[in-house]
Nucleic acid binder design. Structure first.
Lengths: 107, 107
DNA sequence: GCGATACGTTAGTCATGACTTACCGTAAGT
DNA sequence: ACTTACGGTAAGTCATGACTAACGTATCGC
């Protein structure tokens, strides 16, 4: 399983996306994160584990607490993966659109 | 469920990612697509339905066949969503890295 | 040292979804 | 018209994973 595969799988879950977005806005500890979510704290811990293994977040011990923040490399990996198709997709779409217009000229 | 949500959910599945990547390389019909995959043709049809509802692919009838191609808008939506966090993530990471180096100076 | 707080982990439950088989509609070839 | 190829849909099975409750560990304040 590649990093991109793990990252996409991680971001597919709505709860994990919410966690990810909140961490993007502001680094946060697990408890504070769970208090603002409709799920239990262990659930948040498990989600953070998945996000961490996907390279999307980093954790830093801070006393008894533990602060989580965004890891730019995770986002970068997905961006890079998408960019592989971006130009191809635009070309393919442009060719398709043109063939469409030519077809419309026929009648 | 937003478009980005659907797109991320769609690309989380390995089989759908393979289909998506093959369509990015070359537009293709359902049968030809299924022949190169370890799953049945109905399964491919179901995956294509998900990818289509996510705005990631477009289908065009071609006689008895039906050609699927990449829809750039789907990729664009994910890129735009990621870019929301990109700069924030870099800033956050830079600040974190700096606080780390200062901490290393202490001892 | 002791209670309290903050996290991670485990075990177990339950729902989601990926897959196959069977079936039905549609378009091209003979 | 009949047959063949292409593709979407329905029903049913099975595995994955999201969640909770309970437990164990480490850190801070008294």
């Amino acid at each position: 399983m590649t990093n991109v595969s793990r990252a996409l799988t991680a971001l597919a879950d709505p709860t994990r996306r919410t966690i990810f977005e909140r961490l993007a806005a502001q680094p946060c500890a697990v408890g504070a994160l769970a208090r603002g979510l409709p799920v239990s704290r262990p659930a948040v811990s498990q989600h953070l584990k998945v996000l961490k293994e996907a390279g999307l977040v980093i954790d830093t011990p801070d006393g008894a607490s533990r602060v989580y923040r965004i890891d730019p490399r995770g986002i970068g990996a997905i961006r890079h993966w998408l960019d592989q198709f971006w130009t191809d997709a635009l070309d393919s779409f442009a060719a398709f659109a043109e063939s469409k217009t030519k077809e419309d000229d026929k009648p």
